[in-house]
């Protein structure tokens, strides 16, 4: 016989579930409605008819196929770049001794405390000086490394025993080969956590693309949805349909790899 307290706790948790899920259900339900049925009283949870064409029409209202490709391409490229730069730097900070190593590492960690918004103006100017405005390079390279990633991987690599590296050196392995064949395979878990974190983060990226993208063909999904949202007399069913399609990749990734996902996000909490 469960206690009254435990029943209360379960009621609280279930109430939480209802609050968390309702906006989501509302979005899905709206995406299948006709425009006339969007604002009925009471809310029509199950649409009278299933207007599948909302997905097609919404998708074609703007070049969302192109935006989708841009999002996938940019987020993937940023993630790969981060895996390389962060793991190299983390390996260097964890296992090598040289002058300024401590200084470099502190400088990198310091950037964690810098508000991104405070940098947008000069960051834009740097990218403009490089001639990268309105280009994929301009979208990708400035996001190509991360202090959090370096910190996360370094913590992990500190736990790799030095003897392992020493014996690889005795076997005559070159330093790049040790990195590639010893360090990287042993860091697989930390790397996949970082990959999830960076990919999700960039899928959501908005402010930087807003500044650096000028032509429609370079827009990412968040920019496309925002511009669809602000177009005169919003077509809500189509907007919800497109938004639903836009969140599918990350949502699927999350549902498939929940544990890694939550781990990745919690790791960002361990750094305090």
């Amino acid at each position: 016989m469960p206690s009254a307290g435990m029943i209360l706790v379960h009621v609280l948790l279930l109430a939480g579930v209802v609050v968390m899920i309702t906006p989501f259900v509302y979005m899905i339900s709206t995406s299948f409605k006709t425009m006339n049925d969007v604002f009925t009283v009471p809310v029509q949870w199950i649409p009278r008819t299933l207007e599948w064409h909302n997905f097609v029409d919404g998708w074609q209202a703007q070049p969302f196929g192109r935006y989708f490709f841009n999002s996938v391409f940019v987020a993937t490229a940023v993630t790969m770049l981060n895996l390389i730069t962060c793991s190299l730097a983390a390996y260097s900070f964890a296992k090598f001794r040289y002058v300024f190593r401590g200084l470099f590492f502190s400088l990198v960690l310091m950037t964690l405390m810098v508000p991104y918004v405070a940098l947008i103006v000069p960051l834009f100017l740097v990218v403009r000086d490089l001639g990268w405005v309105n280009s994929y390079v301009g979208l990708i390279v400035p996001a190509g490394t991360s202090a959090f990633g370096i910190f996360l991987l370094r913590q992990h690599m500190l736990s790799i025993p030095d003897e392992l590296l020493a014996s690889a050196r005795i076997d005559g392995a070159s330093e790049p080969r040790i990195y590639w064949q010893v360090i990287l395979p042993l860091s697989r878990n930390a790397l996949s956590a970082l990959a999830i974190f960076i990919f999700t983060w960039n899928w959501d990226s908005f402010l930087w693309p807003l500044l650096v993208v000028q032509s429609e063909s370079l827009r990412t999904l968040p920019l496309g949805i925002a511009s669809f949202n602000s177009s005169y007399s919003t077509n809500y069913p189509e907007l919800m349909a497109v938004a639903l399609l836009a969140m599918l990749p990350v949502l699927t990734l999350f549902l498939l790899m929940q544990r890694n996902f939550i781990e990745a996000m919690t790791l960002s909490g361990v750094k305090g």
């Binding site: 730069t85 190299l88 090598f96 990198v108 400035p142 190509g144």
Partner: peptide, 25 residues
């Protein structure tokens, strides 16, 4: 030699930090 390797490995990240964090700050 080891010190040099360490520095070389840190270099890509440091260049990106210099260009897109330190200089902007």
């Amino acid at each position: 030699k080891q010190a040099l390797w360490g520095f070389v490995f840190a270099l890509p990240a440091l260049i990106l930090f210099a260009l897109f964090s330190f200089i902007p700050i």
